[in-house]
Amino acid sequence: MSSPCDPQHAPAGDVGAALMIIDSRLKAVYDGRTETAPEQQQLIDQFTASLDPEEARAVLDGTCTLIFMFMRWLRMAYEDHDKDVIASVVPNLVAALRMMPKSVPPEAIPTMAGLLVAAGTGLSPSLWRRQYGDWTKDEMNPLEATVFLLAEHINRLTDDRDFATRMIADALSSADQDGHG
């Protein structure tokens, strides 16, 4: 029996926009800045302000797709070493989120953990979240922090600061070629 949270039923969303936002955050951290460069932040702010509700939902779905893809990659990587991705990744990410009280309110952490567990068990994080109602404004920073931390975890595992974003960009490029070629 198929789950209502099966990824095949989930919209992919605007993965490219979600990836652009996370990539800019990663670059800021790797460049030693705690904040995104002002001009880059202004572009992100202008972009997100220009989104209508449907486009904003597409970016949210794209962010959830990133979480799913990152957790899928991590699941395969950890299974290659006979480790469980949920036991190996979720506690560390939850601990990291708890250390960000200005960006991540404590009440958002269970939802972020749920997204990780959903993705780690092969469910769509987007569809899993939707069953509990609409996204809230207070969940936006925690969602961004969660996908950022996943990407950074992958980059540390691979010892390559661009691995996570390159992996997704390559997958998008491959999908474009398959769809148009």
Results as ranks from 00 to 15, higher is better:
Asp80Tyr: 08
Asn141Arg: 10
His180Val: 14
Pro105Met: 01
Tyr30Gly: 11
Ala28Asp: 04
Asp176Glu: 15
Gly179Val: 02
Pro110Gly: 03
Lys27His: 08
Glu144Leu: 15
Asp176Pro: 05
Arg166Ala: 14
Thr121His: 07
Ser173Glu: 11
Asn141Asp: 10
Trp73Phe: 12
Ala145Met: 08
Gln41Tyr: 01
Thr36Cys: 10
Pro101Trp: 06
Ser103Ala: 09
Ala77Asn: 10
Ala113Tyr: 00
Gln131Tyr: 07
Gly114Arg: 00
Asp178Ala: 15
Asp45Gly: 07
Asp80Pro: 05
Asp176Lys: 15
Glu54Trp: 06
Pro101Ser: 10
Asp6Phe: 03
Arg25Asn: 06
Ala49Pro: 05
Met140Pro: 03
Leu66Val: 02
Arg129Gln: 12
Asp170Arg: 08
Thr63Gln: 01
Ala96Asp: 02
His9Arg: 15
Pro110Ser: 05
Gly32Glu: 03
Ala113Pro: 03
Asp176Tyr: 14
Leu149Ile: 01
Ala145Val: 02
Asn92Gly: 14
Thr34Phe: 05
Thr165Ala: 07
Asp61Phe: 12
Asp134Leu: 07
Asp6Met: 05
Ile67Thr: 13
Ala113Cys: 04
Ala169Ile: 09
Val15Gly: 00
Gly122Ala: 06
Pro38Ser: 06
Phe68Gly: 05
Tyr30Phe: 09
Gly133His: 08
Met99Ala: 14
Gln177Met: 12
Glu79Arg: 15
Asn155Thr: 07
Pro142Cys: 00
Trp73Val: 01
Phe163Gln: 04
Arg166Thr: 14
Phe163Ser: 05
Lys83Ile: 12
Gln40Leu: 11
Ala17Glu: 04
Asp82Arg: 15
Pro106Glu: 05
Ala56Arg: 10
Tyr132Trp: 10
Arg166Asp: 11
Ala175Phe: 07
Met1Asp: 12
Ser174Pro: 06
Asp134Met: 07
Leu123Asn: 06
Ala28Lys: 05
Tyr78Leu: 11
Arg156Gln: 10
Lys137Thr: 11
Asp82Val: 12
Ala28Leu: 07
Gly133Cys: 11
Gly16Asn: 11
Cys64Val: 03
Met76Ala: 13
Lys83Leu: 15
Asp80Ser: 13
Ser50Thr: 09
Ile168His: 03
Asp162Thr: 07
Lys27Val: 13
Thr136Tyr: 05
Tyr30Arg: 15
Ser173Thr: 10
Ala17Asp: 04
Ala18His: 02
Ile21Gly: 00
Arg75Val: 06
Met20Ser: 14
Ala119Tyr: 02
Met167Cys: 03
Lys102Gln: 09
Ile154Pro: 01
Ser124Gln: 04
Val117Arg: 12
Ile154Asn: 03
Met140Ile: 15
Gly133Asp: 08
Gly62Ser: 08
Tyr78Asn: 08
Thr158Glu: 14
Thr63Gly: 02
Leu149Gln: 03
Met167Tyr: 09
Glu39Trp: 06
Asp82Cys: 15
Ala108Leu: 02
Met99Pro: 00
Ala171Asp: 07
Tyr132Gln: 10
Arg161Met: 10
Pro4Tyr: 02
Asp52Ser: 09
Asp23Gly: 09
Leu116Asp: 01
Ala169Gln: 14
Thr34Gly: 11
Ser124Leu: 05
Met112Ala: 06
Asn155Asp: 09
Val29Gly: 04
